[in-house]
């Protein structure tokens, strides 16, 4: 899961970035509204954590122009403004959730997972697909009830497949999921991790669609 964090306070930004990373998210951190729009234009994100009081371009302005462009990107506003009108304004501008500073890192991560779950149309917090159960909160994976140990990069790819079972994901889309976990993403990196996942979860868990990408088939 790749998250865009827009926060102008260096201490808060650094801490949230670290914390979310520990929770298994890939975090890109920018400090102002203009940088946020630049990042949104050049990368695909699963969610944006947005501070309301930003230099250069305010959080609400970024959000409004994002929604005007028709983007469905889930947005969580994290701000020091706790008055009801401010919250109403934020939610009405197109935010999915609202968190008031000071907030708890665990709560932030839980709210992010909840938004992502709702977006995927699931009520169940656990992802289940082809005998594999993935718990996004604890980052634990079981296959037929037996725990499977996966690396951060493997988990990032697995979650992409389990979020949209049956959908074909391009190599570029999968590469996006791998950014931010350290190390270069080389031309064959995706193949390396697909291979590893197949080895741990069964060869037919991920299948190749020649010239298009990869998918995890809906039925067994």
């Amino acid at each position: 899961m790749r998250i865009l964090l827009v926060e102008d306070d260096p201490m808060i930004g650094e801490s949230v970035r670290k914390g979310l990373r520990q929770d298994g998210f890939v975090v890109d951190w920018v400090e102002d509204g203009e940088a946020a729009e630049l990042a949104l234009a050049s990368h695909e994100y699963d969610l944006m954590v947005l501070d309301q009081g930003l230099p250069r371009k305010g959080g609400l302005e970024v959000l409004k122009s994002l929604r005007q462009k028709g983007s469905m990107l889930p947005v969580l506003i994290a701000t020091a403004r706790d008055e009801v009108p401010a919250r109403v304004k934020g939610l009405d501008a197109g935010a999915d959730d609202y968190l008031v500073k000071p907030f708890d890192l665990d709560e932030l991560a839980a709210r992010i997972r909840a938004i992502l779950r709702r977006r995927a149309g699931r009520a169940e917090p656990l992802l289940r697909h082809r005998g594999v159960v993935f718990n996004p909160a604890t980052r634990e994976v079981t296959l037929g009830g037996i725990a499977v140990a996966l690396t951060a990069r493997e988990l990032a790819l697995l979650q992409a497949f389990m979020d949209r079972p049956g959908a074909v994901l391009s190599k570029a889309q999968l590469e996006e999921k791998l950014y931010g976990w350290g190390g270069e993403v080389e031309s064959n990196t995706v193949e390396v991790y697909i291979h590893a996942l197949r080895k741990k979860l069964g060869t037919d868990f991920i299948q190749n669609v020649r010239g298009v990408g990869y998918l995890s088939p809906r039925t067994v």
């Binding site: 306070d9 201490m11 020091a80 000071p102 907030f103 890192l105």
Partner: peptide, 8 residues
Amino acid sequence: TPVAALKL
């Protein structure tokens, strides 16, 4: 803001 940073 500084309190939020401290908590995190």
